[in-house]
């Protein structure tokens, strides 16, 4: 985990100012929630932290390092997308394992260690029965849990979650909190 700092972030899409001078500091290990009406710029702010959008003004710092112009893959950030963005051609298992497989060498993980970690999050999110299905064969809530699992399986500096619980039933929410 790490410290995330936004300094005066401004992002415009043509005439629309999606993010207007946001500054914030999220402490190490802190659980921080952005609340706001639809269209106020929550997703855009997360995308800027992830490196998927570059701000027109301002700076993004992770652990004191200026990453404003760093590529997403070099930021060590995990993200759950609002529309899940699962890989449609891969099974649930391969979806969850993807972030570990793609950097297996760098992370120094063996296949069995990856399997262990995938099973661990799958159990936590109660999707262990779905591992061999494709995303197209899942309900909305199940897809969302797979997207969540794909982020939780990593040990990144920052977890970004764009409305990660909107589709989860209350029962599961309870078990996530405990």
């Amino acid at each position: 985990m790490a410290v995330v700092e936004l300094r005066n972030i401004v992002k415009r899409f043509g005439r629309v100012t999606a993010v207007d001078g946001v500054s914030l500091r999220i402490g190490d290990g802190e659980f921080y929630i952005l609340l706001g009406p639809s269209g106020c710029g929550k997703t855009t702010t997360l995308r800027i932290i992830a490196g998927l959008e570059y701000p027109d003004e301002g700076k993004v710092l992770i652990d004191g390092v200026d990453v404003t112009n760093t590529e997403p893959k070099d930021r060590d950030v995990a993200m759950v997308f609002q529309n899940y963005a699962l890989y449609p051609h891969m099974t649930v298992y391969d979806n969850i394992a993807f972030p570990l497989m793609i950097r297996r060498k760098k992370l120094g993980l063996t296949r069995s260690e990856i399997r262990e970690r995938v099973m661990e999050v799958a159990k936590m999110l109660r999707i262990e029965d779905l591992l061999s299905r494709k995303p197209g064969q899942l309900s909305g809530g199940q897809q969302q849990r797979v997207a969540l699992a794909r982020a939780l399986v990593r040990r990144p500096k920052v977890w970004l979650m764009d409305e990660p619980l909107s589709n989860l039933d209350a029962l599961l929410r309870g078990s996530r909190r405990s």
Binding site: A50, L52, P72, A78, A85, Y87, F98
Partner: peptide, 15 residues
């Protein structure tokens, strides 16, 4: 194809 799919891979560390 949805762009988010590629963006997810980018965030996950793919070149």
């Amino acid at each position: 194809l949805p762009r988010e799919m590629e963006e997810a891979a980018r965030v996950d560390g793919a070149g």
